[in-house]
Write a protein that binds this DNA or RNA. Structure first.
Length: 425
DNA sequence: TCTGGGGTCCTAGGACCC
DNA sequence: TCTGGGGTCCTAGGACCC
């Protein structure tokens, strides 16, 4: 019988911030999305005042019984803390799957020959706390979905001390927990599906578990059918140790202020194209398809919302920034309309192949650039060295539209000049 | 004034083939 | 009355995740 654990950090982004400003730990703290747009993480103290996804401008001027501390997202810090967290977890289990920036599935099959699952969970917690300063929750179950449910419960009820195991030898306990879990809290059930299930009278995880899989498959999908089976302890979703190569790369951003000039938009698209090409090379892939999209804000009252996307296939697969910028510029020209106040734009690369020269068309005039890989290697080498930066002129210098990050914390763990100093008297 | 970014998988339907 | 059947490939859109 397989056994999975899910380990996940408590309010990860906020914890990363308060780790270096411990005085804020018990105060309400939130982390904001890019451009300081809306709330994407809250600690326990902030949960009673602020909803997930709530726009910051609504909160900033509202009055609360306590001051709410806000940080712009600092992904350099979160990534570096994530790496420490993940290597700490890897040390404790032979087979693991990193599921998100702060979550890891661990294969615990057979481990109960030596130690109880919950004792193991407590060891895991202590190990991570000591090595990173982060507090994690641990849920165990015979399927990934049940491990997720256990982890949800470990946070919902503090008396579990952040560790909870659902095991086949105690089915009553699993039933009890599932009867208390609303369907929208199940892993794989989002708002839409939850609504439809509620209409059918299925409100709790236990009620979903007791619904016939064939009925679910017919009326919903094979995905939800799998969830039903997983809730019944049947492991349908295996541990994925080697995540497959990416199938698409997206670079998109909302602007710090609206873009109305064509030249500004060109700079932005050029910048995103550069970033996307860099990511593509880091993945050691070549792409054969590029799309560009631009859109206005759907929230502006009165204004007509405009959004459009254009895509095109490349004759030759490429990972050369010059090819991707050139095509992106042509695509932008197809969808650009004067007179709109654009809020967001982006580029998407897909249709990947692991090597550049696939099959040269007999009649194609186009030939691959022979200096490409050497030049790109030099570009990436300089930019990764952190000693200097080079970029394509089309991106411009210090543009108006760049991201707002007014409340950014220092790069505590990734920049020498920002390393915290301990004062000893 | 002000509302995130980056992914995955599945399905339905159209185009096209013989 | 009744207007084929079966297959593949591609794309757009919808659902989900953090």
């Amino acid at each position: 019988m397989p056994m999975f654990a899910l380990a996940d950090a408590n309010s990860f982004y906020v914890s990363c911030e308060t780790l270096f400003q411990p005085g804020l730990r018990r105060k309400p703290v939130v982390v904001l999305s890019n451009n300081d747009g809306c709330v994407i993480a809250r600690n326990a103290a902030a949960k009673k005042y602020v909803a997930m996804g709530q726009p910051w401008f609504q909160i900033r001027h509202a009055s609360f019984p306590e001051k709410i501390y806000a940080f712009s997202s600092n992904y350099a810090l979160y990534h570096s803390m994530s790496q420490r967290l993940m290597s700490g977890l890897e040390e404790m289990a032979p087979r693991v799957e990193q599921y998100s920036i702060d979550e890891m599935f661990l294969d615990l099959t057979g481990i109960n020959n030596c130690i109880h699952f919950e004792d193991f969970g407590r060891q895991l917690r202590a190990h991570i706390l000591q090595n990173t300063g982060l507090t994690i929750g641990v849920g165990c179950g015979p399927s990934k979905t049940l491990a997720k449910s256990a982890q949800w419960a470990s946070k919902e009820w503090p008396q579990f001390g952040g560790v909870l195991a659902l095991t086949p030898d105690n089915p009553r306990r699993t039933e009890k927990l599932l009867s208390l879990q609303p369907v929208e809290e199940i892993w794989g059930v989002g708002r839409r599906i939850a609504k439809r299930l509620n209409v059918l009278g299925i409100k709790t995880a236990l009620e979903l578990a007791h619904t016939h899989p064939a009925f679910i498959r017919k009326n919903f999908s094979v995905v939800l059918e799998r969830t039903v089976r997983e809730l019944n302890g049947e492991a349908c979703i295996p541990l994925d140790e080697m995540p497959a190569a990416k199938q698409q790369i997206v670079c998109s951003r909302s602007f710090g202020q609206r873009v109305t000039e064509y030249n500004e938009m060109r700079e932005a698209i050029c910048h995103y194209a550069e970033r996307a090409a860099e990511k593509l090379r880091a993945e050691r892939q070549y792409c054969r398809h590029v799309s560009v999209f631009i859109r206005t804000s759907p929230f502006t009252p009165g204004a007509i919302h405009y959004g459009n996307v254009a895509g095109e296939k490349l004759t030759l697969a490429t990972q050369d920034t010059r090819d991707i910028i050139a095509l992106a510029m042509r695509l932008l020209d197809r969808i650009w309309l004067d007179g709109h106040r654009y809020m967001k734009a982006g580029i998407l690369l897909d249709d990947f192949t692991p090597s550049g020269v696939t099959q040269l068309s007999l009649f194609s005039e186009e030939q691959p650039r022979n200096d490409s890989s050497a030049l790109m290697a030099v570009l990436d080498g300089i930019n990764q060295s952190r000693l200097g930066q080079v970029w394509f002129a089309g991106r411009g210098i210090n543009p108006q539209w760049k991201m707002k990050r007014k409340m950014l914390s220092p790069a505590w763990t990734t920049r020498w000049s920002d390393i915290p100093v301990a004062m000893v008297r």
